[in-house]
Amino acid sequence: MGLALAAGMYGNYGLSAGSLLLGVVIVMYNAFSVVVLAFYQPGQSTDWRSLLKHVATNPLIISVFAALPFTALSIPLPSWVITSGDYFASLTLPLALICIGATLSVSSMRDSSQVALGASLMKMVTLPILSTFAAWMMGFSGEQLGLLFLFFASPTAAASFVMVKAIGGNVSLAANIIAITTLMASITVTLGIFALRLLGWI
């Protein structure tokens, strides 16, 4: 969603710069997510060998590193690969959202409402404010700061539901967080962009 927002706000520049930023974000977020999920999940080994194995076998991280040679060497992909990839990309998000919607329940949302709401506020309010302010203090401004904010302020990715499901975590809580952050995004992103423009930072 961060990439879509970047493309919608900054056009080709947002798409190209956002794609580069997305590769870094995917590797960092997924590496940290694997470590956190393994550390807090009962019955999961937390020694460094096991954690490295989880990180190295993460499909999203593998896909980023597999794409690096093609980008660095400007190797074009066959049209059928791009077409197949577009088909898969069109299918994966709706299927993930269907699974998330099927997992949502009013009772689980009520039981874990404080945890889900707290995590969602941390993701959609606290993290964007602190991260964007830190980036501004480091000298980022204009389009670069705007792109960073859009990625920091994006809702929780639907892929996180798949990761939690695969490792045997609390899928109901994960689905609730994704749903809440997605609903909050339209408000928090709009207010954030308005505030940054009012401050003259972007």
Rank of each mutant, 00 (worst) to 15 (best):
M1L: 12
L5N: 10
L5V: 05
L5W: 11
A7H: 05
A7P: 07
G8N: 06
G8H: 10
M9F: 07
G11S: 11
N12A: 14
N12T: 05
G14E: 02
S16E: 12
L21H: 14
L21W: 06
V25N: 09
I26V: 11
M28A: 13
Y29T: 12
N30C: 10
S33F: 12
V34C: 13
V35F: 14
L37K: 15
A38M: 15
Y40G: 09
Q44L: 12
T46Y: 03
D47R: 10
R49Y: 02
S50L: 11
L51D: 03
L51M: 13
L52F: 08
H54V: 07
V55M: 12
T57H: 15
P59V: 03
P59R: 03
L60H: 04
L60N: 01
L60D: 06
I62T: 04
I62E: 00
S63Q: 06
V64R: 11
A66N: 02
T71R: 13
T71W: 13
T71L: 14
A72K: 12
I75V: 09
S79M: 08
W80V: 01
V81H: 09
I82M: 04
G85W: 05
D86N: 14
F88Q: 06
S90C: 05
S90K: 06
L91G: 15
L91T: 03
L93N: 10
L93Q: 09
P94N: 10
I98L: 15
C99Q: 10
G101S: 09
L104N: 09
S105L: 05
V106C: 02
S108W: 03
S112L: 13
Q114A: 14
K123Q: 01
K123S: 05
V125Y: 01
T126S: 15
T126G: 09
L127H: 11
S131C: 13
T132G: 08
F133L: 14
A134N: 06
A134W: 05
W136A: 12
W136D: 01
M137E: 03
F140V: 01
F140H: 03
G142M: 08
Q144W: 02
G146D: 00
G146C: 07
F149K: 07
L150M: 08
F151K: 11
T156K: 04
S160R: 07
F161G: 11
M163C: 12
M163V: 07
A166K: 14
G169A: 15
N170F: 12
L173W: 04
A174G: 13
A175S: 14
N176K: 02
N176H: 12
N176L: 04
I177F: 12
A179H: 08
T182N: 03
T182L: 11
T182G: 10
I187D: 01
T188W: 03
G192K: 06
I193A: 08
F194M: 14
A195V: 05
A195L: 14
L196Y: 02
L199S: 00
G200Y: 02
G200F: 02
I202P: 04
